[in-house]
Computed example of a mutant assay.
Amino acid sequence: MDSPHGAAVKAEGFGLKGPRGWAFRGLGIDAAPGSLIAVEGPSGSGRTCLLLALTGRMKPTEGHAEIGRHRLPKKMAAVRRIAALGPVPGVNDLDQSLTVAEQLREGALLQRHYDAPIRSLLRPRAERRAAASTRIEAALDAAGLDLATLPKGERTTVRDLERLEAVRLSVAIALLGSPRLLALDDLDMKLSDTERTEVWAMLRSIAARGTTVLAVCSEAPADAVVLRTAPREDGGAGTDRRAEPTAQAEPAAEQDSGARQGSAADAGSGTDKADKVEKADKVEKSETAAHDNDDTKGTDDALAEAGRA
């Protein structure tokens, strides 16, 4: 039997400290591939830092984690290759000036450029376009975004999308590379109760297909593995006492409630999120430059195809 596509998420004594204090500390989790994991807590309680650390975008201060057998913090680059970010405000915002079709084509282009084998860039242009179209259609289907329902179809500009439509578009772009872990931040921001229900249904569907999902929210659904980042009244780390296993969790994970106790300390104002993301961006840019040196010819052809040469 083939192994699940999704990445198992494990951590022990996991913590991240910034200049203003601990964003989170002493976190433990053991979630099986294909789990639906919810990071629950109020804004400013270290939720985003935890998400970025578990996806290899921030370097933890203590403890360790394993994402699909890639150990953090040593294998941060490897984790980034298998973990895709859905909507994370301030980190990977959609380009408001592009149309939906342009945003999708750009996402497919970047995925092929940085994640696909170099030899794929040398295939005939028509073959590359057909492959990109197939990936886009599959990603849109998984994200539940029907372009025909948009005001101007695929020519609708991103700025004209409703919040729920923008979330679905971000998720579709993240799924273009068939990630093993999909991460989303501020999931319920500016969404009605009905829209939140729709989003969680979408994420359950994605998890059911085998992709592990990690979502930051203010209130988690009952069927998710829950990690709570709310601080205690005395300013210490909060403890989640109601973590529950997902339907996809392995029997062993079910027996210990799907997750160990998680804790997080409020580092204030997102614990210098912007500073840490900037450091992560520098790492990404360094890796990108190295990749570019390896496949310059294929890159030029791909960029020319997208009209961005």
Rank of each mutant, 00 (worst) to 15 (best):
W200V: 01
A306Q: 09
R242D: 04
D256P: 00
A237S: 11
E254W: 15
L169F: 05
A166F: 02
L52K: 07
W200F: 15
M202T: 13
L16I: 09
D115L: 13
R69G: 15
D272K: 02
Q103E: 12
R228T: 10
G238Q: 07
R69W: 13
L50A: 09
V199T: 07
K59V: 13
D30Q: 11
T156D: 04
T229D: 03
S120C: 02
A77Q: 13
D95T: 12
D266M: 08
V226R: 15
G307E: 00
E305F: 13
E219G: 00
A84W: 14
S120Q: 11
H113V: 12
A230T: 14
Q96P: 01
L50G: 06
G28N: 09
L145T: 06
A259W: 02
P245K: 02
A148C: 01
G90E: 09
G107S: 05
S170M: 07
A215H: 02
A183K: 04
R128S: 07
V91K: 08
E62S: 14
H64K: 12
R159L: 12
E106G: 03
T246L: 01
E102W: 03
A138H: 12
P4S: 05
G262Y: 05
G258A: 07
V216N: 02
A32E: 05
D256A: 10
A208M: 03
C217I: 04
S192I: 05
V39M: 02
A215Y: 03
R105D: 11
P124Y: 11
A65Y: 07
E106M: 13
A208K: 11
A290M: 12
V171I: 15
A8W: 03
D115A: 13
G270Q: 03
D234A: 12
T296R: 13
L203S: 04
I67Q: 09
A222N: 09
G26I: 07
E66N: 08
G26E: 06
A130C: 10
A274K: 12
G34F: 04
R112T: 01
R69D: 15
D294L: 15
T149G: 01
R81D: 12
S43C: 11
Q255F: 08
T288L: 14
F24Q: 00
S286P: 00
L122R: 13
R71V: 15
L121P: 00
M76L: 15
C49A: 15
A259Q: 01
L203M: 10
M202L: 14
P117C: 06
G236I: 07
S269K: 05
D240T: 15
R119C: 00
R129Y: 05
P60L: 10
T48A: 11
N92M: 10
R242S: 12
K10M: 13
V225K: 02
R232L: 14
T239K: 13
G15E: 03
R128N: 10
G210K: 05
T55K: 03
L184H: 04
S178C: 04
G86S: 10
D188I: 06
G298N: 01
T157A: 07
A306F: 11
E162L: 12
T157H: 14
G28R: 10
S178E: 14
E137P: 00
D95S: 11
A215T: 02
D188T: 11
A265V: 15
I67V: 15
L303H: 07
G41S: 04
R57P: 00
A32K: 03
T197G: 11
